[in-house]
Amino acid sequence: MSVLTPAPARDSLRGPARVVLRQHRLLLRIAGGLALATLIGLVALALRSSHVAEVFEASGCPVDGSDGNRPCMQTARNYLDSMSFYRSIFQGVAAFLTVLPALFSAFVAGPLIAREFETGTFRLSWTQSVSPTRWLTAKLAVPTVLVLAGTAVLASALRWTSSRTANPYPAEWHSWPLFATTGTVPFASLLSGLCLGTLAGLLIRRTVPALAVSAFATGAVITASAYFRRELWPTRTITGRSLDVRSNIWWVESGPVNSSGERLPPDLCSPAGSHGEWLRCMADHDVTSQYLDYHPASHFWPIQLVETGILLALAALALALAFRVLRRRTG
């Protein structure tokens, strides 16, 4: 009778991890190829846009065409058109990176996990020498490492290349695709997508419904975190008769304040009417100054970290539930 000594944890993950890699070889190759193509494309675009910018600089024409020189105005227009086109491509890549967690979640829930239940291959996987818990760990670890690494490379390439087109279209730090593809938030979103997908796959056990539900759930999480982002850290406020609007801030809310310091609704006096009407309306409501709630650029990291924390907590909860579901099902 053979006595088996339990293999160390790292060894017992290596086998299943290799099997997962080979099972999804085709998809990995396609995804890797796409990521590489995107990377090359971004670099090429960055080089191209710096070239265009240099050529324009050499022409000596002002961007706004203020000297009234017709050929120069055309040059400026061409330059602006090209730069705006390049920026839109960067924005497109950034937007893709922000929805990547939903796609990843769908892949984890459907093809990775639910399909094993749908086709019955979990009966094969779970009766090898590897426990279902290790099986799931290996299954999740492999694509997660690859996706996180790919995202890190693409996000930093995006930042580097996008800085090349910062003029004349600067990206604001708080804008939707930029904020969600910099710092720690993209990784936390991916992890929450991973864990929601795992839970959906284990609970639903059919490929297409699991895929749809997890993509929807992760999409909802990404949208909600973008929507409530501004609430994640207390705003700063300035008040005054005329607001000294600093550059590089995230404008959250502004409106009139009356003499007793009470905030009035922002749309109190519609600017649609004449200026005189507007002044009378302001006087009627005893408006003495204006307020502005905003996030300065220094709030970037606090907001990033709070959002990351919330997403990671959600991920941890979903993952704990997923492993609990798995352990309850099997002996």
């Binding site: 088996l4 293999a7 299943p16 080979r22 085709l26 086709t119 019955g120 009966r123 094969l124 020498s129």
Partner: peptide, 25 residues
């Protein structure tokens, strides 16, 4: 199992290789 589940995208050789990977001892 009754329905003989196997990973459909693997070859015969890959499947046997997977058996070796998943049962190293």
């Amino acid at each position: 199992s009754q329905d003989k589940p196997l990973y459909p995208q693997l070859t015969v050789a890959d499947t046997l290789w997977a058996g070796a990977q998943l049962n190293p001892a």
